[in-house]
Structures are given as structure tokens and as C-alpha cells.
Design a protein around this nucleic acid. Sequence first.
DNA 1: CTGTGACTGCTAGTCCGTG
DNA 2: CCACGGACTAGCAGTCACA
Lengths: 76, 76
Amino acid sequence: MENDLLKKLGTRIREKRKTLGWTQEDLASTAQIDRSYIGSVERGERNLTFTVLCQICTALDCEVAELTVGILELPQ
Amino acid sequence: MENDLLKKLGTRIREKRKTLGWTQEDLASTAQIDRSYIGSVERGERNLTFTVLCQICTALDCEVAELTVGILELPQ
DNA sequence: CTGTGACTGCTAGTCCGTG
DNA sequence: CCACGGACTAGCAGTCACA
């Protein structure tokens, strides 16, 4: 797929997860999503939907906005 | 589908679009998305993907974070 | 503990049209 | 200008086995 935005988002999700000291399995079970799916999201391989993003953020106890600030390169 | 999160998001997109004085068609062509799809997103009927959300935000010249702040009801 | 490939059902997203 | 429909294709959600 090769999408920079998805890679950025995935990296941020991973970092947030690690600050909690969680494994992918921990996050997966809390968010009620398959572990391997979480993995592919973190690697930026999946173009996830808004509801899934919300599930992950809720599990991480963090705002969607927190993971998305400055993710776009808007024209000055 | 009946998803409150999608309705909230759709409403915010609509409001942002109107502040620019744009029609759905204006936004659709700028974001390169189908016009009828924009309509259903604004009505909260569609579970859009992250890339499409980014396309819309870019077209609206606004951060993803701006449309998503406080959209989740996180446990205090 | 995580990366990866493969798979199926369903839905995201397009394109046409109507009132 | 927008809501809403039908029909269609591309692609996502969700799962598993195995490394």
C-alpha cells in the first residue's frame, strides 16, 4: 500500500502502546481486535476505518486528536 | 449503521465546509471523492477510512485533530 | 512477542440517476 | 444544492497458521 500517513499513524499508535508497557496482545484484547490486525496497523499496512481507529484510541485511553496532530502537511 | 461517532464527525465536517462557503460538490472535487459519498459521510452514514478522512481534511485545509478533539468519551 | 501470507464476507467508495 | 436510491468494483475487516 505504501502510504506515509498510515505509517505515521501506525508508528504513533505503537509508541503510545509502548508508553503503557503493553504488548500487541494486550492492546488487541482491550480493543477487541485481532492481534495480527493491530500489528499490521502499526506497520502502516492497513487503511483502517474511523471506527477501528476510535476503538484503538479508546483502548489506549487517548484522544484521536492526540495521534493525529500535525500528521497532515497542510499548505502554509 | 447508526454510529454516534460517525455522526459527530460528519457534522463537524459539514460545519467546517460551510465556514468556507463550499458546496458538497466543491469539497468532493477538491478532495477527489464522489459527491454522493461526501453527503453520506456528513450524515454519518458511512464509516470512512483514514486516508479518505485525510483527503477531506486536506481539502478543507484543516487538521485531522481539529475535527476529532473530544470526539471520544474517555473514562476520566 | 511479533511479522507475514492467505483467505472470505462484507463494506468502502464510484457512478449513474431521481425528486 | 442536497438527500437518497440502485448497481457495481475495489478494498477493508477479521481470522488463522506458521515462522
